[in-house]
Design a protein around this nucleic acid. Sequence first.
DNA 1: GGAAGCATGTAAGATGTTACATGATTAC
DNA 2: GTAATCATGTAACATCTTACATGCTTCC
Lengths: 211, 211
Amino acid sequence: MPPRLPATSYAILGMLSLAPMSGYELLANVEKTIAHFWTISKSQAYSELARLEELGLVSGTDVAQEGAPHKRTYRLTDAGTAELDRWLEEAGYEETKTRSHLLLKVFFASRMRPEVFAEILDRYRTEAERTREHLSHIVDMLDGMPETFYARATALLGVRLAEAGMSWADEVSAAVPEPRTPPAPATAVARAARGILADTPSRPKRRRQRS
Amino acid sequence: MPPRLPATSYAILGMLSLAPMSGYELLANVEKTIAHFWTISKSQAYSELARLEELGLVSGTDVAQEGAPHKRTYRLTDAGTAELDRWLEEAGYEETKTRSHLLLKVFFASRMRPEVFAEILDRYRTEAERTREHLSHIVDMLDGMPETFYARATALLGVRLAEAGMSWADEVSAAVPEPRTPPAPATAVARAARGILADTPSRPKRRRQRS
DNA sequence: GGAAGCATGTAAGATGTTACATGATTAC
DNA sequence: GTAATCATGTAACATCTTACATGCTTCC
């Protein structure tokens, strides 16, 4: 048993459980399948594969090709399969800690000119719509194939989330308040800061989760 | 002009624009306000403040206290205010690249026992509901205060996203297919892999965004 | 007596990104 | 010719996390 692998390792083990493949193919397949919730960079793919091989969880074979460079194809070893399944059978999973650059700007947007805020919201809405289109195509394609139920489920959450984002953007852009043309007096600013900083309870601490 | 700061720096500059505060207070305020989309660890808070001070964007003052350890309070300098506003006025923002440990497990969940999958979904739904409760309290509290419109907007997206997650969980758990009791023949597995790997278009490459 | 809050930090390490580096083949 | 695809990797760097380390005060 390897001590504890980062989630990216399991992503790679999982991909290899679908089919043996090279680093290059892995990256292409990640783009087609899990990239909307788990991206893997090029250098990470190659270095992770090397590490997993050292750990004996995958094994690589060099394959010569005509009309293309050689490639190194990896497949799961028995130990790799066991480790993947062990991870899957743990019911725990890490909380997603989102880092939303969008919301970071939104939170402080009272300092922005309204046009800039409108542009940002608009861009977000457009992006969300593009994402929804893209993922709902995938959902439709996988429809009715019970073998791909779980893959479809991941795309479906992406669709639902994108829809939520779109309607949020509409809701917010319809409700933007008039900016105070004379800059808000210091007392109003202080009141706002108090409103924001003082009145909101901090989010509940999660109790430690096994796994 | 500092070359290009990580987003966490702007988060800190933004917080200090609401009120001067110490590292400890910063962390507490981050928990109360932006933590649902931007967490900052303790060591990062202290080291970022030190860096921002070196850059001349914030300035710290030691404050003696009775009945409590001394603290060092930071406030924005003029350069810090300018840099915060420069960042805010850039309409671009980085895409959120989600890393969903949940979806990573879901994607490969056909290898799981159905009970484990049910447990995972259940946990996710419960978490999403808790998040919704928490954030909708905040939304309600900030309701009708135009000064806190943007802070409220960030919580509102959290609410919408949590709701989308909840209904996704319901939808998916209602539709889980019967597991093939005799393990699926290799051809079915291969077909599934083909369905997942081959039929889905990769997500569109985003053209580079200025900023 | 112990837990929780106040307060600041260091050290070590893992994770992950971007840019650099190379080179063949195929299709336009 | 040039761009795209196939193919693998290294180097440098930035970010971020966890654990360690300390110590006073207040409240139960």
